[in-house]
Design a protein around this nucleic acid. Structure first.
Length: 347
DNA sequence: ATGCATGAGCC
DNA sequence: GCTCATGCATA
């Protein structure tokens, strides 16, 4: 499936370098973010993140609850615009590994800058207008996710943006991997690099809702810069050295089809097996217990995405067929919220 | 694009 | 040991 665009150097690399390397020193940002994290009330932040309303059990069903979007992740909203910074489209290679914190954790280290501007038509010139940071009293208010505008968390909006983002990225000739690395060069506090996987999942809407909401402003910001850089693309920067890859690679377990089928059967019977049951299954399938445990974890994560996927498909179909009638009794997904059917859901 | 893995925070 | 965000490795 490797589309060739996913990793490594491509013919676009040289051009890409001019696009990506120009934002700032990622190491400095990582540092700053860490310091910021140390300074904040982590407990409170986490309470936001783990608000019972949006906790585990199911982001899907919880999605419809009110207020669940006021999570720490949402403080991405209204980030200061990076576009006002002089844009040096000269060089630098996307460096990686400057993250001690995950992006989401980094988000938690960020401050709120007040309500975000609307996201009209993806006019890149407006996304994070400086007006969003013009209120100094809002800075450093923490923890607080400003009441998020519905626009920012609207699944349909996220869906639209993801599609828009993907199309523009491709138009720009930029790979998912490069976008991920470039993020570290953005002038966004607490924002580090992301992997190709994550960019891919964002575009394909296979992240959780909260994750989508958190990442959207960041990717939007990058896109804004990339578009800008594209306009003044004359200086194709230098080629950066390829660093020797001396790290030992992680080995990935591969579960054979027969075993996988059995695991799926077990999963249908009991998606949350006890430790004992896991051990028994592991024993029977001749797999390590931990492998089985992780498989179930991942399967549950996957299932949530699949639920949303089905939900969306159903509503998409319903949309084509015109005004929907009352959901049938079998159409359970449609019934899971105060809003009834929402004709859209990412993933 | 996706399967398996890791680590943080929580219970 | 769970969820969730995220990454590495690979089909």
């Amino acid at each position: 499936m490797q589309t060739g665009a996913a990793t490594g150097t491509t013919k676009m690399q040289t051009f890409n370098n001019s696009l990506f390397g120009s934002f700032d020193d990622p190491l400095l940002h990582a540092r700053a973010a860490q310091v910021a994290l140390a300074d904040i009330d982590v407990k409170n932040v986490h309470q936001q993140l783990t608000n019972p309303l949006m906790r585990p059990h199911d982001m899907f069903s919880n999605y419809f609850s009110t207020g669940i979007h006021d999570t720490a992740a949402n403080i991405y909203q209204g980030l200061p615009s990076s576009s006002e910074q002089p844009f040096d489209a000269s060089v630098i290679v996307p460096t990686s590994s400057d993250d001690q914190m995950t992006p989401l954790q980094q988000v938690m280290a960020m401050q709120s800058y007040g309500a975000p501007p609307p996201f009209a038509q993806y006019n890149m010139a407006h996304s994070f207008s400086t007006t969003s940071i013009s209120n100094p009293t809002n800075i450093a208010r923490y923890p607080i996710a400003p009441p998020t505008s519905e626009l920012e968390t609207d699944p349909r909006e996220l869906e639209r943006f993801a599609e828009h983002f993907k199309q523009r990225r491709i138009k720009l000739g930029v790979t998912q991997a490069d976008v991920g690395k470039a993020l570290a060069h953005l002038k966004m506090p607490g924002v580090g690099s992301l992997s190709q996987s994550t960019i891919c999942r964002f575009e394909s809407l296979t992240l959780s809702h909260n994750n989508m909401v958190a990442l959207k402003p960041i990717l939007h910001s990058w896109l804004e810069k990339a578009e800008e850089a594209m306009k003044q693309k004359d200086n194709i920067g230098d080629i950066n050295g390829i660093l020797p890859n001396t790290d030992k690679k992680r080995k990935r377990t591969s579960i054979a089809a027969p075993e996988k089928r059995l695991l799926e059967d077990y999963f249908k019977q009991q998606p949350r097996p006890s430790g004992e049951r896991i051990a028994a299954i592991a024993d029977r399938l001749d797999l390590k217990k931990n492998v089985v445990r992780v498989w179930f974890c991942n399967q549950r994560q996957k299932q949530k995405r699949d639920f949303r996927s089905q939900f969306r498909a159903r509503n998409a179909a319903a949309a084509v067929m015109g005004p929907r009638v009352m959901p049938t009794s079998t159409n359970s997904a449609v019934k899971c919220g105060p809003f009834g059917a929402i004709p859209s859901f990412y993933d």
